[in-house]
Design a protein around this nucleic acid. Sequence first.
DNA 1: ATGGTTGTTTAACAA
Length: 290
Amino acid sequence: MARLPRITLPGLQGRRALPRVAPNRAGIRHPMKIASFNINGVKARLPALLDWLKEAAPDVVVLQEIKSVDEAFPRTEIEDAGYQVETHGQKSFNGVAILSRLPLEDVSRGLPGDEGDEQARWIEATVVGREAIRVCGLYLPNGNPAPGPKYDYKLGWMERLRARAEALIAGEDCALLAGDYNVIPQPEDCHDPAVWKDDALFLPETRAAFRRITNLGYTDALRSVEARGGIYTFWDYQAGAWPKDNGIRIDHVLLTPQAADRLVGCGIDKEIRGREKPSDHVPIWVELDL
DNA sequence: ATGGTTGTTTAACAA
């Protein structure tokens, strides 16, 4: 089995002493590893997904762009790998899922705030480890072209996300919001900011909406361990973006204060972007002392 | 400036 190199993040060098310990009597390992991965089509990516699950061994995964209805999701193969599967799919586009080795409770599908929203972009569940955490998986709208109706939908969706995020803060919940945000938070989160100037992923209004969420009290996990930027989670298939390292950081894990207090590790599995038939995104993960 | 790619689905659309 290939080994995934662990990217060294300077901000965590002093905090990596916590060992990965053997399972306790309840069979629960710690720290708990939670990952997010936009797989860009679960059927096309199933072998790559199963390989990565074995190598990275996350306890919980939120997936985006499964591009599958629930009935066509390769549930059995993933259950055989040891994961409970909860999906929220639709035909052809979008679609999210949660995979978990630990029990899931109170699964909820769809972002509140618009009963007429047909797009499958939100799923949340409580993961019961030594301590529980509310895990929210999201696929935020791309929004291009901007301006236009797609951009209006993106901004409306972000306001609904802000409202849900605010409720988790108000409840003092141990929770995280993980997924493909389609937001480049800062210029240092892309290879060439000038290229993205008028793009829905980087427009000032997009970044302001993202800040309204983080400023509620969330920790951007990867930013918190590597503030300098230059770490990306997406490289376009086109124009040799990967070999040129022309990437952007748009997959994020945001932690409530109660979750951020438990953060002991964070990184991306960059190496898999160079494999056969890769997704255009790579996984991002956190380790929490839960 | 344009085109370059991939997945779903089979002509475009979304990204």
